[in-house]
Design a protein around this nucleic acid. Structure first.
Length: 237
DNA sequence: AATATTAGCAACCGCACGCAG
DNA sequence: TCTGCGTGCGGTTGCTAATAT
């Protein structure tokens, strides 16, 4: 049996996604869903194959994805699950809400594997001097703003699902179009909007910006969060 | 200042599976 | 049962940025 190619490769974009491509994909899925990945890029006007769109959506653009450093608890969970399940990343990801299989696979291969099996660390020795790794965020300054939403305990269930996506939509679409951002800010790391995790924290959402730039940039992001949060009240933590 | 090395991670690739006709 | 399609999954690649030399 000859498999059909997953996509017509000629004339299609490869490599990193641009902000404009992201916006087109998010906008299309928001309006039409993603019942057919192969047909989606053509219908959305994207020069990407369906696989690429699916991967981008699942690993990066889905509103409920939790980004940023893994907590100690999450790392322990991954180590434990990996002992039970092996490299079944999708099953491990299913038990870690907001984390993707790709992300878990990456953190295992680059970090946890060496913690669990020091022999591997000997085979792949780390230099004592710190190299790279700045994206771990350990040295990044962190701006935290607590968001007092207007979501009441009683109405939380109904609005929980739409909470984060609402903010993301506002980011991509109307009030904060990319064209309104300065050139330098386009290259800034993505803002991570974390929706309420449980009912106990239902009235508070956290907007966290991990970045490693100047105080001016920090001020930019503070203003940014204030702008997208006009549906909420803010208070500094 | 230029170059080499390294870690982190987004994205690609190919195979396998499930399902419909 | 066979075939073909769409999708999911896991392994791998390659780019970027930080740091060392």
């Amino acid at each position: 049996m000859v498999r059909a190619p997953c996509c017509e490769k000629m004339g299609q974009n490869k490599g990193p996604w641009t902000l404009e491509e992201d916006k087109v994909l998010v906008d299309y899925i928001r309006r039409h869903g993603h019942s057919n990945w192969r047909a989606l890029p053509k219908q959305a006007g994207l020069l990407r194959c369906g696989k690429s769109c699916r991967l981008r959506w699942l690993n990066y653009l889905k509103p409920d994805i939790k980004r940023g450093n893994f907590t100690k608890d999450e790392e322990d969970t991954i180590i434990s699950l990996h002992q039970q399940l092996g490299n079944r990343w999708s099953e491990i990801a299913a038990r870690l809400p907001g984390r993707t299989d790709n992300e878990i696979k990456n953190v295992w291969n680059t970090h946890l594997k060496k913690l669990v099996n020091p022999k591997i660390a000997q085979i792949e020795p780390k230099t004592e001097k710190k190299k790279g790794g700045s994206r771990t965020g350990e040295e990044a300054s962190t701006l935290s703003v607590s968001v007092e939403s207007h979501i009441s305990e009683s109405s939380f269930d109904a609005r929980e699902e739409s909470f984060s996506s609402e903010i993301v939509e506002r980011f991509w679409l109307d009030e904060l179009s990319i064209s309104n951002l300065s050139e330098s800010s386009k290259n800034m790391p993505a803002v991570e909007i974390q929706p309420p995790i449980s009912k106990s924290t239902s009235s508070v959402a956290m907007a966290v910006v991990n970045q490693k730039n100047s105080d001016d940039d920090m001020e930019f992001w503070l203003n940014f969060i204030m702008e997208i949060g006009d549906l909420m009240e803010f208070s500094h933590v």
